[in-house]
Design a protein around this nucleic acid. Structure first.
Lengths: 195, 195
DNA sequence: CGCGACGTTGATTTGCCTCAACGATTGTGG
DNA sequence: CCACAATCGTTGAGGCAAATCAACGTCGCG
């Protein structure tokens, strides 16, 4: 298992002893997925909190008309899970699917709770992660209301240039809450603006 | 200071010893605000994480055209803060304003960090709070994309009936991301549907 | 080569916004 | 105790951003 990315990531936030790191890794499992495979299926219980070692995934909701709504992308050093399903052990409302071949390090609920008990600093790590994610997500709601689609797209590109390169346009449109056709029109307008 | 609501709230999530509860309260401060007063002003640093003992507040963003976009309401037993400002000690992007006379229990960053160190269980408490809030906020984004305004309003009313009663309609419209005029039209349509 | 996945472009429609005018209710000072 | 101003909600006319639908272009790949 290539655990270096995870340990580096954690070291950016908290300091673990060698024993604690060993314990952490002993409670983690490693899994590789091919492009297109599902890590979580809508309706199943989400059994893991997953750290992306390499690759890229999307978390999305499929509505009654079968339309996909992308909640988030997860690339290297991001966490992904249907948290609600994960905590409450209920069927997931989201799907998580790999957009590339992807390697994950995963934690079950039981192992994570055990780790929280043994290494309270991890509670801190995730407190910080969730706190930040909440701030970002709240801002996204406000931007969706306050900014026109064009501006949101520009902001997305500025904030996540790698993701803009890596994933198909129609998925970015979905993340922004607009149709692929409209994003295409925005882009062609941006090109003509440039002149 | 009426600390019972806070202690009850905390007891629902974790168990503190009497000493820990005493320490917690010794690091908290109590403040009362009148209807209309600002707890946080856009541009100032948000110095506190606030627990609502009684009353009601709104957190909102004011855009360049001066329009308000409501991020959340906070009634009894809710937390409110501009978390990003609070953690990073930078100017707040949101305002928090009282919609009624409101009593708060507040924690500064320094005191909260001290408490986290002394009582790691609190780290757990907030980890859980943020994790849940994140799940709710993500779902709100998806609903904004997937549901028409009418359905979002119905869902809001079902989820937060007390808030629907307590705050003016135009603020609910703002929370839902629509204009007050349009919400009014939705409501009159709902009444005629009923027949 | 031909098929599937992705992107583009145009015509039409629609959900919601803007603006403007008009109640209804509340509260407050003369 | 009334007058009058805020504050909040309603209604209607007109407009626009973005959706829908449909057709077509392009590239990579089995």
């Amino acid at each position: 298992m290539n655990s270096k990315p995870l340990l580096d990531y954690i070291r950016n936030h908290i300091n673990l002893t060698a024993q604690e790191e060993t314990l952490l890794l002993s409670k983690a499992s490693n899994r590789k997925f091919l492009k297109g495979q599902f890590v979580v299926q809508q309706g199943d219980v989400c059994k893991y909190e997953s750290f992306v070692v390499s690759g890229c995934m999307k978390t999305f909701y499929q509505d009654n008309e079968g339309h996909e709504h992308i909640v988030m992308f997860a690339v290297e050093n991001w966490w992904a899970s249907d948290f609600d399903s994960f905590i409450t052990n209920t069927p997931a409302t989201y799907c998580i699917q790999c957009l590339e071949n992807t390697e994950l390090i995963q934690f079950t609920y039981e192992n994570l709770e055990l780790l929280y008990r043994e290494v309270p600093k991890l509670e801190r790590l995730f407190r910080i992660i969730f706190q930040r994610a909440l701030a970002v997500t709240e801002k996204r709601i406000i931007n969706n209301f306050a900014l026109p689609s064009k501006d949101r797209y520009l902001q997305f590109r500025a904030q996540y240039p790698e993701i803009d390169q890596r994933v198909p346009q129609y998925m970015i449109a979905s993340y922004l809450g607009i149709t692929k056709e409209f994003l295409s029109k925005i882009r062609s307008q941006l090109i003509s603006d440039q002149r």
